[in-house]
Design a binder for these strands. Sequence first.
DNA 1: TTGACATAATTAGCCAGCTAACTATAATGT
DNA 2: ACATTATAGTTAGCTGGCTAATTATGTCAA
Lengths: 170, 170
Amino acid sequence: MLQLRDLPTQEVLERFAQRYPEADVTAIASFLMLLRVATDLSVALDACLSKHDLLQGRWWVLILLMREVDLTSTPSVLAEKLGITRATMTGLLDGLEQSGLVQRVSAPHDRRSVQIKLTEVGQAKLDAVMPDYYTRLRLCMQGLSESQRNDLQSILGVIDQGISAWDFNQ
Amino acid sequence: MLQLRDLPTQEVLERFAQRYPEADVTAIASFLMLLRVATDLSVALDACLSKHDLLQGRWWVLILLMREVDLTSTPSVLAEKLGITRATMTGLLDGLEQSGLVQRVSAPHDRRSVQIKLTEVGQAKLDAVMPDYYTRLRLCMQGLSESQRNDLQSILGVIDQGISAWDFNQ
DNA sequence: TTGACATAATTAGCCAGCTAACTATAATGT
DNA sequence: ACATTATAGTTAGCTGGCTAATTATGTCAA
């Protein structure tokens, strides 16, 4: 994933704002900072997972399965929850099944459907990765107070609302 | 890019925290919310750019060039600023050059190097896209006060510091 | 000066996303 | 009952990232 490493200076931002009157300088700066930190996190996560021979997409699938009480879901539900197509999910599951981390079981009631189950090997893989992952997460958030964490979440909620106001029909 | 659409419930988070004592529940929740909003933004940005026949990687290159006073840079500097490899940059520039948005000019002093220049067509493309982009950005941040925007940026700064504390040598 | 190393860009080949088309099965309306 | 439509999963083929190797040029120290 592309990682924004170079944020514009205040001077550059103002030059852009002069050419484009629609610009809201603090909105742009906040947006860019948000993208930068998120891409940094994603890149760091990739690096952490690669030590355990995992790729991010496959790892998120394992997490989603572990969230289920019966450790089971279906390809289309998993794809929906990760925001990827079912076709892509087929590929992720092929890889995971080949490594023995999940298994496909035919569904009893709907013969079109397949149940995906986290295997014991898959659970063991998660048990190996999660402590490392959670320790790193704790580390990178430890500079924030509880109230800052709450502030962050509510601010992000407002932004997410704002995104859904974008209208692509025109 | 993968888009996290499904955040864990408080109950699920606590179940994970019970299995993995390293878990810091509010750190995890904040992290996941941050990733979700950032991926939502990136997906929305893709949708906005596709209306103008642009892809995100190529668009960031145009932005970086416009930030320079002489509208010029080199492939390796651009790659560094976007956090991608020079090989990938070669491909982005091939596409941009083919569309006439940038041009390669051989560098005077170092014959290994190439200068990349934003063309007038490229500038015109930016002039078409930026007002739309900035308007959307203003829209999605308009629910935040100036102080919330400052809070956001300083909180993100703390997190970014925390990431660099991850040590992958062990 | 020249041998060793460093740097700029590209090329070749791999992998994970995507869309579109396909198969099989289920649900629905007349 | 059965034709139509919808849904679950897969396959095929495309694209844009990646790494590793290649070519050309520059730098530096013996």
